[in-house]
Design a protein around this nucleic acid. Structure first.
Lengths: 241, 241
DNA sequence: GTGCTCAATTATGTATACAATTAAAACACT
DNA sequence: AGTGTTTTAATTGTATACATAATTGAGCAC
């Protein structure tokens, strides 16, 4: 009944707990690599079978994914991979365009040699994934690059926001990506590393901003959500009969 | 085994599910009103008794609170009210100083008469709570004011971030607040509403920025965390013997 | 009296059983 | 055949039981 009043000594590592949940980790990675599409149903029993855990663990994972906006949870109806609306997509990129240029600036000011080396290594891994035509892995690594910069900026709070936005971007790209101007990333990321290495804050900020605008403008919200596509197609077929 | 592939029609209301959890709602409000202090232990059985639910529900609520940085979850050690470090406190306010001025600007551009009326009503409620010396309620309402502005700005994604930061601020204030310059809020909030009503974006942005800097600079990280205070006090008593 | 060890207790981690709800199938009826 | 209704199956919501780990406190040695 009474809530005991004892104070603990040291704090956190925010999502350390949820990172041990195989459902959270597995589904997150699958979404980031676009191995499961937006809107896909995620039944608790199936997930339990796949990851060899009980529904208790599945539910914990799904709840965490839901708070990360990667999964939609509807009462009594279960979970499905999130299906961000055009509006949400726009908002996510607006938020990134607000946060990440500042983050790149701070990274340029803070970066140590070790950070640069780490980024270069990462860019190499991105390059390899693209060569292998492993588009899923490439996409995930590309997102991770942005997170790494946010971490170098040494502001964990904002870095977490950026991490969340980057994750959601994978779903947005899955839904609204059009052009095959994919190769932008390669050059952009390298140029960004160069600017950061030079501690050229202004340049890093500008490069990040334009990089994000590039991605954003390669999205197309013109057509209705892809989720309605099938219905529309079917209607079209029906009418043509 | 196989995950069925069916698409659902409409999406989200992100934390609609967790808002139905009495533990989440109850503890969140208690923290925002500073009725439970940082570091306080939150045993699952106790919470279950208080809210009349099983540990299943308690755990779901605690997990959500943990992702909101209001509760710290340590494996096999249970939950306690979060105890933000000075660094985390600084980061939270830095993030607010980055996001909220922009938010106030957008609010000034977007605000409709109904929004203004709502804000004025809210300011009145804040005033009343202060008169009644209901400092907990006053603090929660004061935070809610900032959230409302973020919502008027019509950017849900960023508004959610701000909401999270505002919540965490309650814990930070509980730990690091010094002066009784509390009355700042009253004037600041009214001036802000005026600027927004005039659609004076620059003024709204400036007012919000300086308002946040005021709060931030009224925090003192000089002394060790208050969690050590009791220990220090006890040591002091011991020494005086 | 102080510090250590180990049992007893308490609390958390996970699975499972059952209830409630939703989705699907079978059936009756027009 | 097509539509509306009832029955059945499948899925989620919640509580509880059991396993496991942490904490407390008693007893003992020093």
């Amino acid at each position: 009944m009474s809530i005991t009043h004892k104070k603990t000594e040291f704090p956190q590592s925010t999502r350390a707990d949820v990172l041990q949940n195989p459902v959270f980790v597995g589904i997150e990675q699958a979404i980031l690599e676009q191995r499961i599409p937006p809107g896909m149903r995620l039944a608790e029993n199936d997930l339990g079978d796949v990851y060899g855990v009980s529904r208790t663990i599945v539910r914990a994972g799904l709840q965490a994914l839901s708070q990360a906006h990667l999964v939609t949870l509807r009462p009594n109806r279960g979970a499905s991979v999130a299906n961000p609306s055009p509006r949400e997509a726009r908002e996510v990129f607006e938020a990134r365009e607000l946060l990440e240029p500042r983050s790149a600036r701070e990274a340029a000011l803070n970066a140590k040699p070790k950070d640069i080396a780490d980024l270069r290594l990462h860019a190499l891994a991105e390059h390899e994934a693209m060569q292998e035509n492993a588009s899923g892995r490439a996409l995930r690594l590309s997102g991770l690059f942005h997170v790494k910069i946010a971490e170098i900026a040494n502001q964990k709070t904002i870095a977490e926001f950026i991490e969340s936005l980057v994750s959601r971007s994978s779903l947005i790209i899955a839904l609204y990506w059009t052009k095959s101007s994919t190769r932008c990333d390669e050059g952009c990321h390298n140029a960004l590393i160069d600017a950061i290495e030079r501690h050229d804050a202004d340049e890093a900020e500008d490069l990040m901003r334009s990089h994000l605008v590039d991605i954003h403008s390669a999205l197309s919200f013109g057509v209705a959500d892809k989720e309605h596509k099938t219905l529309k197609d079917m209607l079209g077929i029906d009418l043509s009969n």
